[in-house]
Each structure stands twice: as C-alpha cells, then as structure tokens.
Amino acid sequence: MSAVRWLVALAAITVALVLQVTLFPHVAWHGIVPNICLLVVVAAALTVEAPFALVLGFTAGVVLDLAPPADHVAGRWALALTVVAFLAARVRQDVKPTALAVVGTVAAASFVATSIFAITGLLVRDPSMSVGGMVEVVLVAVVWDVLLTPFVLPPLMKVFSRLNPRWAAD
C-alpha cells in the first residue's frame, strides 16, 4: 500500500511540475504561475500521516530545485515545501477539513512557501528582485494557488485518503 501511495504521489508531483513549466506560463500573469507542486504537498499533508507528507514535501522541493529550467541555488524550494508540509499537517482534522479550512490552509501555505523561498534567496545572495517585486510575486502566487484549489485539492485528497490504510477503514 505504501509503495502504491508513493508512486501516486510522485506521479502527481511530476504532472504538477510539468504543467507548471509548460502549460501555465501561457496564461501566467507577469510570469507568475500557480505552484501546483505546493497544492499536491498540502493535499497530502491534510489527508495522510505527517511523516509521509514531510518526506513528500522535501522530495517535491528537491525536484523543483533540480528540474530544468531551474537555476537558483538548490535546496531553497526543498526547505520551503518541508516547512509547508509541517504547517499543513498541524492543521487539526478531528473531522474532515471544511472547504474553507482547505482554502485557508492553501493560502497560508502559498504565502509561507514563496516568502521562505524569497528570504533564503536574500540570505545566500542568489541575485533576486526588488522588495516590491517580491511582494507582488508572493501576493499573486497566493491568488493563483487559491484559484486552482477547487480543481486540484478535492480529487487529490480523495485519492490520498483512499490510499491511506488507516482511513480506508472509516
């Protein structure tokens, strides 16, 4: 079961990454595209157990860091998405998360991830844009991710919770 889940998760990450760099740039706003890999990580963190989500976040980050045409210092997305997986897994779900909770989590996760990425860029002196540009990027990215949430999160969460051995019994 675990192997199947890993396969599904990695396939989701691959599809998300490829869509993000090939399809969405054609509809991007000033080059800012939705971060679908982040949506996959949040979906996993909201449905399956935390260790899996953490490792998935890290893996997705490393792939984002290395796959062409990425050229920034590697490890920055890995750091950002690991933190996002940790935060999203802390959202309590005694019951199934409501739609509003999911959207709120995605918005917070997107804000945190893009900000962490931008700030680590400043720390390691990776050449980056002005503060005004960063604020624009962070805010537009949040809007994009929230807009895509209704289309991406429900099917992914359904798939993940079906593949989750503990929840399968419920």
Partner: peptide, 11 residues
Amino acid sequence: AFGPRQAQSLT
C-alpha cells in the same frame, strides 16, 4: 518550459 517568476530566475 518557462521558469516561474516565483523562482526569481528567468530561465
């Protein structure tokens, strides 16, 4: 493929 502007490098 286009690098996203979130990644701050235009590649």
